[in-house]
Structures are given as structure tokens and as C-alpha cells.
Write a protein that binds this DNA or RNA. Structure first.
Length: 931
RNA sequence: GCGGAUGUGGUGAAAUUGGUAGACACGCUAGACUUAGGAUCUAGUGCCGAGAGGUGUGCGGGUUCGAGUCCCUCCAUCCGCACCA
């Protein structure tokens, strides 16, 4: 009987499902381990071979940890709200819930056929009301909280109300964060607060809530008809679809993630993540230390506030530049300059983000006609407007020091503005050509700062600025608050209603606020989001609900918590469960979520921690980012202006255009010409110029695996051909998990043959069991224990590819030894069960054990005594070059080894009569003779 | 420009602490067997060379008895971020 993987695999998958083999429960007397995969968005295309890569790794690790005695939580679910289902709904009129349901069914079937040990009793779907009820509940928690800088944590908004009714708001005390430093809020006394109307109070509180409705410049994407978060905009276009994005001032729900900037930064040091992801997050948060500084406006009240990281260069200020959108631009423009300024501001405002980024080298700007006074010297400093200053960063205004800042330098040169040097460069340098931007040198022309090194001048300058009351030390973050509303249908409704234009939150017991039915999934005629179409969808039948929905990242920011206690209807997860399961011990997923999901999930976790709902403040302790599996695309070459295709080797003789050919039509580079003709009607009549042997050879290129490139390989056909165990091991065998690699099925036979070879250790040619009882042979014990050692070492360092090789080496050796010993094979099957669970279950039963129990065994114990050797083949090197080997007893000490080696004929031959200068002997390792 | 990662046979790769470079697998070559199976078995396979031997981990240098591994310089590819004050 041959290895019949189809029969074996379907039988065991059924067994696992029927016996709920992978159901886990909290067991407080056992140590827990939480292994999490990034849950998928169930797209219509199904899974391709790249998707399960991480799932296979996490599955192997989960099963391994179980063999090590841990109680392992390994759940799976679906991030099932999202744009593609909605776009499809717009096109077809089909409800997104329906297509989502169908897609999930397909994903489930694809995952099941791979034999994963997920506990499906814990499945979550973000689009289910039973789930998003708690997403909405967390939103309410955020809405009803503020960040208290005195305690440095989130607190109930009640504690802020208490502060206001006792102390009022005194912004000069500088201990109250609004999160948006550029927003001015009028101060008030406790008495004034208490006299405020409900509406006034709510308006003030809105500046502090962690989830708030605020006016801000947002990324508006007209094509998608919605706003986007910063991480959803890549190079000025939308991440999904690549549509242009504009900056627009809009009222939007936002999350005050900026309040957590410092803690999000500090927390990174405690995490076992790759440097590249940590760096991305640090970069995204973008902390910079400096000072905020006010320049009084000449001839009128008020001042221009700037942020600078180089307060030491204060005496080199030549002008001040405002962003075109800066609120003071209009009032600072003199009548003579008005026409010019307005024209400039209009052009700058109307340029899309993409255009603005596309030409960063064009210098443009305009003088407002007004001046500020230099805070120290009182000299007039002209105020300019320039689009190199961004309204969203710092204060939207800079003090320009052309001599020591690249952009200021270029701006000054372009407009002929003065360049005043205040730092003496530390090496030969021509200030006529460039700005000296190094943070070193000695200050000159700077009154009180003269003679100081830059590093000393910075604190001294800040000290002086604070002393004179011109400004203060400030830490600035690039991180912006995250826009939270989407003008879309297929997302969580935001649990807010409006009374007299003022937003009110639903109470927790009114949740879930379920998604209403609409006639169309499009905006209304007057531009309202789709939810505005829902008839009679009003709070208490009277008040309008919020019509925007939550963004994709809402549901995924806390799903790892729901898995801990997925059916709980009284809370998002019980305290007992969050305390037991705690942080995710191992998180496996793509690196593309570095600044989105991974930052938002950390933020929400910190808020829930602050509010006392969970006992930890980082969600994912260790993370591994699996590399992308790239597709190998095939190309045919169409001769331009014809319907003829020329084979790869002759394509240089013609002017051709490469066209993707479906990889299923290509075998080993050769095109199935008939199949290609039938594939698309436009090719039905095509002519082919072939190789000499009559075949048509395709070109190949490694690209991202994608439907549009016709290079997608689904796991289904490979499972059908080789079985899940083979595919699981092959995906691991491809190389290190973290590395990107092209997909190529060439080597899959090797892995499949390994499993057949393993099968033959148990069976003879007739399919009869040949397992022998009795004592294990010494040689086999050595092979086994060598493998045990390597397997556990490799698994502990997540080296799954070398793990597969270890099994191959082990089975090769046992085959050579003709070992069919029960004791050896039993341990081997246990070790293999994480990698190839189906065949392991099958062989386990064949060894006479109970069905379904192989995963509940203990990982074999390593016994070093089986590996002890009496002799060693010393590699003998001359000047570091290995020349021959000499078998010597391991009992010999270094001197004895040296003597034995030097007396050998081989040695004399290589010495060519010379005396060795030096002999290095590392017992049990190497001998090196220096000549 | 800044940051991160990666460079090893025809291919995917291994080498965990500085100690035999290329394990394991694919592919290829030659042979055996056969109930013709994407089977199995044997031998070979980094490059140059008939061979002795030489040479070899992106380039160049350094430390060391000994470097794929440590240090310096440079190059290439990929991925983030980027008028960030």
C-alpha cells in the first residue's frame, strides 16, 4: 500500500473536526502560550500560496509548544469589513454581508484542507454585530476619556470635569494636553465653567476626548469618496486603488493617538520585534526636541509661533516662513502684496499632495509685506509664505536660518535674502555654496551664545528663551491624530447621535448600533455618506445618527482580546481570561502593517490598560514578519502591430511587447499554445513563431503574486496533487520565514519523496507494517538524538526550513540503517507531528496508539550520551587551508594530537621539508599548522 | 537624502559561539531495475585544470594561527520614510 495522502488527510481532518481535537480552555494550573496570526480580509480571490506561509509556521509552532506542555491559544478569524466587498456591492447591488459570507466560506475550506490546529470555536468576524458591539463599546470608552498629563494616562472624562469645576482651564499651567497644539482654546475659571451651558461644556470637552469630532486637514480621496488615515496614503495616492488624495479641512471623527506618542515610542524598547518595524514606528512618530518660540508681529498685536530644533541658531534668523494654509497669512498680508500672496496661496492650496511632493526642488514663495521683531535683537524680520513649510507639522511656521538649514538656504538664495553665518564650521567649508547643517562648530555673531559649542549652545539658548518668556522647550512629534470616520457603508456604525448639532454618545447598554439597510451603497445626492439613505434610522426615532462609519483598522485594533473570550455577551473579554491569556507571545504576519494596524493596536491596548480593563499595555510581545512569496510571471512576446507571438530566444529580432500569460498554461517554460488560444478570444487566431523543436518558450520575471499578472498559484491544486503535509513542509523548506522568495514548485517533489520515504520506514512493498519491537539499535539512537537536538534548537529560533532538512537527514540515515524500530519511529513521529500532522496521526495509530493523541505527547527528551564519540576526524589545515583529515582518539590532549599529526606522512608532504612555525590544536575541533 | 534588510553553486538554500564553505533539496550527467511510477536504487556534480593542484561566500582593505561570520571603505538589489523645521 502506497502513501495515500488524499485518503489519510481527509479522514484526519474529519476526525479533528468531529472530536474537537483543538479546542482550548483556560487551565490556570498550566502555563499558557498565545500564538496569533494576522487575520485575513476575506477577499473574493481566495488564498494563494503566499497567504498560508505564516499560518503554517504559526501552526507548527503552536503544535510544538503543546508538545512542550503549554496550553496554547491559536485562534483565527476574519477582518471582514472593508472596501472591496462594498465596491462589489455598488456594482452588483448585492449586500456586502452576503459576498463576505461566501468569501469566508471559501477561506475556511482552504484553511481546513491544510490541517491547521485553529480552535474554530473562538472564530471572530469584525462585521458581526456580536463582535462590533464591543468595537463600538471601546469607541465609547475612548469618547468618554481624556489623557491626563499629570498622571500620564487616560482617565474618565469625569476627572477632567472635576478639574474644570475646581480650577477652570489655565493653559499657561501647560499641563493640559489638547493633542493638537496648534488649536487655541480660551482659558476659563472654575466659576465660568460652572456657568457654561451644557452645549458649551461639551464643546470644550471635545478638545480633550480621546475619540473626538474635530476640524482638521484630512486626506480626502474623491475617487473613493472618503477620507483616509495617513497610513492609508502612500506617495500622495490611496493605498487601495492608487487614487489621488487631496488635503481638505473637514469635520471628522479622530483618535487622539498623539497623546500617546511618547509612550508608543518608549514601549518599543520592551518589544521583541525586528529593528526595521521598530524603526518605521519611531520614524512615523517622529519625535524631535527643540523649542517653540514666539516672534512678536511689528506694528500690531500678536505673534508668530515657530518650532525649531536649532534654537542655537536664533541669531542667524533672516526671515520667517509661513505655510500657505497658515491662519495668519491673510491678516499679515499688506495691501501692496495682497494680489501676489492670494494668487500664490490659491495655487499652493489647489495643488494636490502628489503634485506638491513630485516637485520638491522648485522653490516658490512670496513676501507678505509684514515683519516680526527678532525676540533678542528687536530687528525687523520679514515674513514670507512658502509651500516648503507644511501646515500639519510643528506650528506651520519656521524661523529661517539660511546659513545653517538646507531649505532655508535654497529659499534665501532664490529670493536674494541675507545669509547670516552664526556657526564656525569645524572643517574647510564654503558657505557660498551650501548651508553648514552639521550639529557641530562654535557659535559666532550670537551675543550671549558666542564661543559655545553647538551642543552646549542649544540648552543655553532654550534657557535664555524661557527666561525672557519668548517661548519654551518643546518636544514635537510628526505623528498626527488618526482620522477615524469613513464616508462608507461597510464598516461599524459610530455610536453617536446629534441633538441640536451637538454629538452625544449612546450608552453602553444601547449597543450594538447595527448597520441599517440602504437602497444603494452610494452617497446621497447631496453628498452625505450611504448611511444617510437609511430610512427612519434615528436615535429614539428623533435624532440623526452619525452617518460615517469606522475605518478598517477599528476592528483589528483589539481582535486579539476577543479570541480570549469570544462568546462573552457581558464584556469584550473577562478579566480572568485577559489575565490568563495575557499578551500575545508570538505574532506572525506581514511587515506592511508597520505604521497602521501595529501602531493602532498598541494605542488601543494602552488606553484599555490605562482604564483598567486589561493587565498589560503592549499587545504583541514577539513578532515575526514572514517574507512575501513572489510570483514567477510568464511572458509571451507579441510582435508590435500584429497578432503574432515570437518565442523567447528569437524576440530580439522583432519589435515586441511582452504580455502576461497565465502560468497554468506554461509548463517548464513551454507554452500550451492551444490552451493559450482558448484562454482569451483575442488570441484565438494568433500565430506563433517557435523554437526549432516547434515549442514556444516563454520569458519569466519575478513579481508580486497577483491576479492581474496571471501568476497566482493557489494551494488547492498543490494539495490535490501532493497533499497538505507536503505543501506545509515545502513552504517551510523554501527558505527562512522572514525572507521574500519567488514561488517555484520545482522542488516540491523532494519534500513529497521524503514523506514517501518515511512511509517506507513503516511499511514493506506490499504495504505490510514492518515496525519491529525490541531494543533500539545504537546507531539509530544516535541519529534520533542528533535530530531531537537540532529540531528543538531550530524550532526555538523559528528556523523552520532547517527543521525540514533535519527530518530528511534523519529519515535518510534510518533508511540506510534499515531501521524499523518501534522506539525510534515513535519519537520521530511525535517530532514530525507539528510539521506534517496528518501522516503523523496515521503512523501513530499504526504504531498501536490511540487515535488523535500524538499531539498530546511530550516532545522527546534529548540524551547527549547517545552522541558521545571516542574518536574524531581532525581536519588538518596548513595556513588555514584544510588539506586532509586524520582520525584520532578524543582522549588525546592537545600535545598528543600535535605529536600524532606531525609524525604523519601527509603532514611531512605538505610541510615540504620546512619546520612548522606554529601549531594550533583545538581538541575535538581542528588542527592548524602555520608554515 | 535618512533608516532598515539582503548579497554564498545552474536553482532554493545550510554553516547557531571566528574552526572542514556549499548540509538538505531541486536540476543535471552516467548507470541499474521495473507491475512505466511525476517510482526506486548506485555513482558523480562550486569554478578552472587531463592531472598534481589552483581558486572560491558582491568589490577592496584590515584584525586573527584561522574570517561567509568581527572591523573599515565601496558597490548592487529590495523595503520603509522623506521639503519634518
Amino acid at each position: 500500500m502506497e502513501y495515500d495522502f488524499r485518503e489519510i488527510e481527509s479522514r484526519w481532518q474529519k476526525f479533528w473536526a468531529e472530536n474537537r481535537t483543538f479546542k482550548v480552555d483556560k487551565e490556570t494550573d498550566r502555563k499558557k502560550y498565545y500564538v496569533l496570526d494576522m487575520f485575513p480580509y476575506p477577499s473574493g480571490a481566495g488564498l494563494h500560496v503566499g497567504h498560508p506561509l505564516g499560518y503554517i509556521a504559526s501552526d507548527i509552532f503552536s503544535r510544538y509548544k503543546r508538545l512542550r506542555g503549554y496550553n496554547v491559544l491559536h485562534p483565527m478569524g476574519y477582518d471582514s469589513f472593508g472596501l472591496p466587498a462594498e465596491q462589489y456591492a455598488i456594482q452588483t447591488g448585492q449586500h456586502p454581508a452576503l459576498t463576505t459570507e461566501q468569501n469566508i466560506a471559501r477561506y475556511r475550506q482552504q484553511m481546513d484542507q491544510l490541517g491547521f490546529c485553529f480552535d474554530w470555536n473562538r472564530e471572530v468576524r469584525t462585521s458581526e454585530p456580536a463582535y462590533y458591539r464591543w468595537t463600538q463599546w471601546i469607541f465609547l470608552e475612548l469618547f468618554n476619556s481624556w489623557y491626563n498629563p499629570r498622571t500620564n494616562r487616560a482617565e474618565s472624562i469625569d476627572s477632567l470635569i472635576e478639574i474644570f469645576s475646581n480650577e477652570g482651564l489655565n493653559l499657561n499651567a501647560s499641563d493640559i494636553l489638547t493633542g493638537d497644539i496648534e488649536k487655541e482654546l480660551k482659558t476659563f475659571s472654575a466659576t465660568e465653567w460652572n456657568a457654561f451651558t451644557e452645549v458649551q461644556k461639551r464643546e470644550v470637552l471635545m478638545y480633550f476626548r480621546l475619540a473626538y469630532l474635530g476640524e482638521a486637514y484630512v486626506n480626502w480621496c474623491p475617487a473613493l469618496g472618503t477620507v483616509l488615515a495617513n497610513d492609508e496614503v502612500i506617495n500622495g495616492v490611496s493605498e487601495r486603488g492608487g487614487h489621488p488624495v487631496e488635503r481638505k479641512l473637514l469635520k471628522q471623527w479622530s483618535m487622539r493617538i498623539t497623546a500617546y506618542a511618547q509612550r508608543l515610542l518608549d514601549g518599543l524598547d520592551t518589544l521583541d520585534w525586528t529593528d526595521s518595524i521598530k524603526e518605521s514606528q519611531r520614524n512615523w512618530i517622529g519625535r524631535s526636541e527643540g523649542a517653540s518660540l514666539r516672534f512678536p508681529i511689528q506694528d500690531r498685536e500678536g505673534s508668530v509661533e515657530v518650532f525649531t530644533t536649532r534654537p542655537d541658531t536664533i541669531f542667524g534668523v533672516a526671515f520667517v516662513t509661513l505655510a500657505p494654509e497658515h491662519e495668519l497669512v491673510n491678516s499679515l498680508t499688506t495691501d501692496e502684496q495682497r494680489a501676489e500672496v492670494e494668487a500664490y496661496v490659491n495655487t499652493a492650496k489647489n495643488r494636490s499632495e502628489r503634485e506638491r511632493m513630485a516637485d520638491v526642488n522648485t522653490i516658490s514663495g512670496v513676501f507678505t509685506g509684514s515683519y516680526v521683531s527678532h525676540p533678542f535683537t528687536g530687528q525687523p524680520v520679514p515674513i514670507w509664505v512658502g509651500d516648503y513649510v507644511l501646515v500639519g507639522y510643528g506650528t506651520g511656521a519656521v524661523m529661517a536660518v539660511p546659513a545653517h538649514d538646507e531649505r532655508d538656504y535654497k529659499f534665501a538664495k532664490h529670493f536674494g535674502l541675507p545669509i547670516k553665518q552664526v556657526i564656525e564650521p569645524t572643517r574647510e567649508f564654503d558657505l557660498q555654496k551650501d548651508a553648514w547643517t552639521d550639529k557641530e562648530g562654535v557659535l559666532i555673531n550670537s551675543e550671549i551664545l558666542n564661543g559655545l559649542e553647538v551642543k552646549k549652545a542649544i540648552p543655553k539658548a532654550i534657557e535664555a528663551i524661557e527666561e525672557h518668556g519668548f517661548g519654551k522647550k518643546r518636544i514635537n512629534y510628526r505623528l498626527r491624530d488618526a482620522v477615524f470616520g469613513r464616508q462608507r457603508y461597510w464598516g461599524e456604525p459610530i455610536p453617536i447621535y446629534y441633538k441640536e448639532g451637538v454629538p452625544y454618545a449612546l450608552s453602553a447598554d444601547e449597543l450594538p448600533l447595527t448597520l441599517p439597510e440602504v437602497d444603494k451603497y452610494l452617497p446621497t445626492e447631496d453628498g452625505e455618506p450611504p448611511l444617510a439613505r437609511a430610512s427612519n434610522w434615528k436615535y429614539q426615532g428623533v435624532y440623526d445618527y452619525e452617518h460615517s462609519t469606522m475605518p478598517g483598522w477599528a476592528g483589528s485594533s483589539w481582535y486579539f482580546l476577543r479570541y480570549m473570550d469570544p462568546q462573552n455577551t457581558g464584556t469584550f473579554a473577562s478579566n480572568a481570561d485577559t489575565a490568563y491569556w495575557n499578551q500575545v507571545d508570538l505574532y506572525i504576519g506581514g511587515a506592511e502593517h508597520a505604521t497602521g494596524h501595529l501602531l493602532y493596536a498598541r494605542f488601543w491596548t494602552k488606553v484599555l490598560f490605562d482604564l483598567g480593563h486589561i493587565p498589560f499595555q503592549e499587545p504583541f510581545q514577539k513578532m515575526i514578519n514572514q517574507g512575501m512569496i513572489l510570483g514567477k510571471s510568464s511572458f509571451v512576446y507579441r510582435i508590435n502591430g500584429s497578432n503574432s507571438f515570437v518565442t523567447f530566444s528569437k524576440k530580439e529580432e522583432y519589435q515586441t511587447t511582452p504580455i502576461h500569460a497565465d502560468i497554468s498554461l506554461v509548463d517548464n517554460g513551454k507554452l500550451d499554445i492551444d490552451g493559450f488560444r482558448k484562454w482569451r478570444s483575442e488570441f484565438a487566431e494568433s500565430e506563433f513563431i517557435c523554437e526549432e523543436d516547434g515549442s514556444y518558450l516563454c520569458g519569466t520575471e519575478v513579481e508580486k503574486m497577483s491576479k492581474s499578472k496571471y501568476n497566482v498559484q493557489t494551494p488547492d491544486e498543490l494539495v490535490e496533487k501532493f497533499g497538505a503535509d507536503t505543501l506545509r513542509m515545502y513552504e517551510m523548506f523554501l527558505g527562512p520565514l522572514e525572507q521574500s522568495k519567488p514561488w517555484d514548485t520545482k522542488g516540491i517533489n523532494g519534500v513529497h519523496n521524503f514523506l514517501r520515504k518515511l512511509w517506507r520506514l513503516f511499511h514493506d512493498q506490499e504495504g505490510q507494517i514492518v515496525v519491529e519491537n525490541g531494543e533500539a539499535p545504537k546507531e539509530a539512537l544516535k541519529t534520533l538524538h542528533k535530530t531531537i537536538k537540532k529540531m528543538q534548537d531550530d524550532l526555538e529560533r523559528f528556523s523552520f526550513n532547517t527543521g525540514v532538512s533535519n527530518f530528511m537527514i534523519c529519515v535518510n540515515e534510518l533508511s540506510e540503517q534499515k531501521c524499523h524500530n518501534h522506539l525510534i519511529l515513535k519519537e520521530l513521529v511525535i517530532m514530525l507531528s507539528p510539521y506534517a500532522p496528518h501522516i503523523s496521526e496515521e503512523l501513530w495509530v499504526k504504531l498501536g496508539y490511540e487515535s488523535g493523541t500524538v499531539g498530546k505527547q511530550h516532545f522527546p527528551a534529548f540524551n547527549e550520551s547517545f552522541l558521545v564519540e571516542s574518536s574524531f576526524a581532525y581536519p588538518v589545515s596548513f595556513n588555514g587551508k584544510m588539506r586532509f583529515k586524520a582520525e584520532l582518539s578524543l582522549d588525546l590532549n592537545a600535545d598528543e594530537v600535535q605529536k600524532a599529526i606531525l609524525s604523519r606522512e601527509d603532514t611531512q608532504k605538505w610541510l615540504e621539508g620546512n619546520a612548522p612555525k606554529k601549531v594550533i590544536v583545538v581538541p575535538g575541533k581542528i588542527v592548524n599548522i602555520v608554515m
